[in-house]
Design a binder for these strands. Structure first.
Lengths: 332, 332
DNA sequence: TTGTAGGCGTTATCAG
DNA sequence: CTGATAACGCCTACAA
């Protein structure tokens, strides 16, 4: 492992000069520059990033703590972040919090001891208070897919209410009036917001809100299954279902198919998120597109901007309706 | 950011002593140990990992270069690796190679300059020769999901031939004799091996191999689509299809559904990989389970073992047949 | 058991 | 434009 000293010796200059050419400092004579470059080449020299970090107090890396390194949500997000960061010479250290509060904390500690230039938080378990506390402790922390008022200028989040509204409005426009909704767990702000959007659309259309048409489910597929079953058992009339996310929609698909029905016939179904695997559903799922990749890009850019200047600005992203085959006008 | 010096000052001992209690060196008196711990606590001290790494020449981190940070294959693999590593105080630096040779190289360089303790390679674009070259250059490199003979003891790979055999054998056992196969790109060793397994099963059953029943597709869904279309156009008789992976199987599902047929009726379909999203397919896909998580765990353990002692051993994992609904006895 | 001091590989300040 | 030299924060002989 060649060091800067070996390079400087070989090139017949001082370490300082080598350092200068490495860092693109132009106050180096052409001759020396070339000598140094030749020497680096010959030795296969790679600067030791630890020594650099120690000397500059910058690590050129940013840490992220996500729920899990796998899965259709975090994957694309990390990918887009990494792509942007790498273009700017920064790198990503990924840790998973497992949606478990202790692990989330540990991950932050680790990242901190790694002296990352910034920390991206995509966590669920941690309370708002704790996030705020971290925000005070570490000035370079950012919060993704979550809105924490006190940290607004460092949050990047989705307008969930709008999404819920769009989904419901679409059904109303098709002629539906008896519209059910299977929400995610209402402890989650997203789920509440999406539900609020649903209510907004109804009231805008002059349709009365009926609690009987609402079921609280889990964000997982089987959660959707159970919730859908519950809804159908209630023996209430409805012609469409707004789902808290695509997984829940899959649960509804299953319940319908057990009854030998297809979504978009007697009952229309709208999902939320537009996870990539949703395209494998048949009929194809009408859903609300969550701009995951954009969220990642925004986060990366925010970090990058903040590294130089010191201006932050929270970003709210907008969801969009994607109409496919699982929704249609109600039969009568 | 508290340093070791501040801790030692506060505790009224030398830096060396602080260092000793950090590293669990037991040659420290109980009194001093407690003093130091109290001081660390009070200051919220976190060792600077760069300084540690610089001094010890160990980074306690391992790098991985994967095709993409997202997706159903790399995600679970990284997750399982990270879980194991973290338990042992090591951490994961993730970089994506994008299946592009230049990026793969750059990723390795980066990881190297980061002085990771080991590098995990899950790459496609790089040639065997280049991988071998890297293997010589860096003693701590491991190859996942790929078998490179010259680096056998540092490879962790799947017995693909067995998988192809199991898929085909299953169909034969059901009574099929006219079995088609849509392979992945045959430049890939995996695809060739899987095909070989198919041939083995046929010959074992005394069924003649018919090249007309083979189509080379891509590993992506639309690749499967096109290949399947080609197969059906050939106007050859067959009652089952062995697919190179689940994506291809999805392509076949699509073609069949366009003809208003369901897999498992006139035509049986077997996938390969058992990607998590396959469970969203209806009817549920019979497929070959690829032990992704196990592969990750094995890789992590191999790295860990090698850090202390110096023994490596390549690992070959075995696939398993998962019977679901897309296969059935042929109708006659 | 404890403290002193040199070294890890860079960067950056300050003279020249 | 160039070269000494002092940090950066921690580890680890070596000596006490």
């Amino acid at each position: 492992m060649a060091t800067i000293k070996e390079v400087s010796d070989l090139a017949g200059v001082s370490q300082a000069t080598v350092s200068r050419v490495m860092n693109g400092n132009n106050k180096v004579s052409a001759v020396n520059r070339e000598r140094v470059q030749a020497a680096m080449e010959k030795l296969g020299y790679q600067p030791n990033s630890f020594a650099q970090a120690l000397a500059t107090n910058r690590s050129y890396s940013v840490g992220i703590v996500v729920g899990t390194l796998s899965g259709p949500f975090f994957g694309p997000m990390m990918q887009s972040i990494e792509t942007v960061l790498r273009k700017h010479g920064q790198h990503l250290i990924a840790t998973s919090g497992d949606d478990h509060i202790e692990q989330e904390r540990e991950a932050v500690r680790f990242l901190h001891s790694r002296r990352v230039d910034a920390i991206l938080l995509v966590v669920q378990a941690m309370t708002d208070d704790e996030v705020i506390e971290l925000g005070k402790q570490y000035p370079n922390i950012y919060v993704l897919n979550r809105y924490v008022p006190e940290l607004a200028e460092r949050c990047i989040y989705l307008n969930n209410e709008l999404g819920g509204y769009l989904a419901t409005k679409h059904l109303i426009d098709l002629g539906h009036t008896k519209i059910a909704s299977i929400t995610g767990p209402l402890i989650h702000l997203d789920a509440r917001e999406r539900l609020q959007g649903y209510r907004n659309a109804l009231s805008e259309a002059g349709i009365e809100y009926d609690p009987q048409l609402i079921v609280e489910g889990l964000f997982q597929e089987d959660g959707g299954n159970k919730a859908a079953a519950k809804l159908f058992q209630r023996d209430i009339d409805f012609t469409a279902v707004v789902c808290g996310n695509d997984n829940i929609a899959i649960g509804v698909y299953d319940i319908l198919s057990r009854a030998n029905e297809a979504p978009g016939e007697r009952i229309s179904v709208v999902g939320y998120d537009d996870m990539f695997y949703s395209r494998y559903l048949r009929p194809k799922l009408t859903t609300i597109r969550f701009p995951i990749v954009e969220m990642g890009i925004n986060a990366a850019n925010m970090v990058l901007n903040n590294l130089d200047q010191d201006l932050t600005n929270g970003v709210q992203l907008e969801p969009h309706l994607v109409v496919r085959e699982s929704t249609a006008a109600p039969r009568d």
